[in-house]
Simulated scan of single mutants.
Amino acid sequence: MTVASPYAVELARLPVTTRTLALAGSSTRVWEYGAAGADATARADADTVLVVVHGFRGDHHGLEPVIAQLGAPRESAAARRRIVAPDLPGFGDSGPLSAGHDVDGYVEWLRELVDRVREESPRARLVVVGHSFGSIVSSAALAGGLEVDDAVLINPISAPALKGPKGLMTRLAIFYYWFSAAVPEKLGFALLRSGLVVRIVSITMSRTKDRQLLRWIHDQHSRYFSAFASRAVVLDAFRGSVSHDVSEYAARVTVPTLLIAADDDDITPLAAQYEVERAMPDARLVVLENVGHLIHYERPVEAADAIEAFLAEERPA
């Protein structure tokens, strides 16, 4: 039985369109939220476009709670805002890439997506928003010259995963993915889609004491955490997620950047978030308390408020 979303009312108010784009060899499924994404004319008139990059093993649904707040017509600023939320290639409803599903492969895909978005909304302020693994892909692309106006990284993975507060859990995860790759494909695929493993991960990352919210988070993970094209896709992406982190790209991320971090993130210690803030030429850090790696599920209102404040900052002409 599907658990109702706590953010369903806000999300239902948003116009939503879907389409499939040919990008980097992938048939990428894209959801566009807000009136400014409704058709070609509306896209051309958009004044702000947010390109949202979700995390490892998820799909676009994961960031919908934040999107629901950012796209809400509570302010006139949202009227011409276009929010572009693809499923990463190989996950959700998007087909796999023609190249490998490592950080480099996803960076090339993101470049093509941003180029397409810019062609469609040539006068818009362009903002890339990455969560978790999406923060690595986004920062790597920015360091490599991706041209956008601003960046937002939610739960950025700002240090090597093995050095995180729960490095043992990461080592267990590495063994799990290694074992899933070593056994015959049918068994490995079943292990990767194990409902028990998904629930353990969901319980480990959650911090909320709200039982209804927790039920919904577990339901979200059960429904969307195992929608990947193949064993090879998920294994490549996992290797990328533990082999790279935002800190290696930080000094070359020169656009104004907002980091939204948690004080109890299992993957990245808070000290590493401050180090990345100092390393980036133009960054500011917002820390949310009593939350872990699921800011997008547990604290989307606060995350959206931080993004709205960031977008409202005065910028040099």
Rank of each mutant, 00 (worst) to 15 (best):
L213I: 08
F133T: 00
E147F: 05
L213E: 09
R231H: 06
S243C: 09
R199L: 07
I154R: 10
H244D: 09
V197P: 05
Y177W: 00
E147G: 10
D150W: 08
E185V: 05
V152A: 13
I157Q: 01
V255E: 07
V137S: 04
S139K: 05
D219E: 11
R239H: 14
W216T: 09
G188N: 05
P256N: 07
S132A: 06
R207M: 12
Q220W: 05
H218C: 03
A232Q: 15
M169Y: 14
G167P: 08
S243K: 06
M205D: 12
V242N: 00
A159V: 09
S194A: 04
S230R: 08
K209Y: 14
W178A: 02
P184L: 08
Y224F: 13
V242E: 00
F179M: 02
P184Y: 11
K186A: 13
L187G: 10
Q220L: 04
G167S: 07
V246Y: 02
S202A: 14
S206F: 05
V234F: 00
A251D: 14
R252V: 02
A159T: 13
H221W: 09
S202V: 06
N155M: 07
R125K: 10
I217V: 12
R211P: 11
L153S: 05
S138P: 14
I157S: 01
A143W: 06
E248Q: 15
P256F: 04
W216R: 13
A173F: 01
L259M: 09
P165S: 08
S243I: 01
I174K: 10
R207F: 11
K209S: 15
H131L: 07
R193N: 13
M205A: 15
A181L: 01
A140Y: 07
Y176S: 00
A124S: 07
R199Y: 07
I154T: 10
L126G: 01
L142G: 04
V246W: 03
G167T: 07
Y177V: 01
I157W: 00
R223M: 09
A141T: 09
G145F: 08
L191N: 01
S222R: 15
S247V: 06
R171N: 13
L142C: 09
L153R: 03
L214A: 13
H218M: 07
H218L: 07
A159M: 10
G144K: 09
P156A: 01
T170D: 04
D236N: 12
D149R: 09
V183A: 06
P160H: 10
A181S: 11
V198M: 04
T254K: 12
D219C: 03
S243P: 12
V183Y: 05
A161M: 09
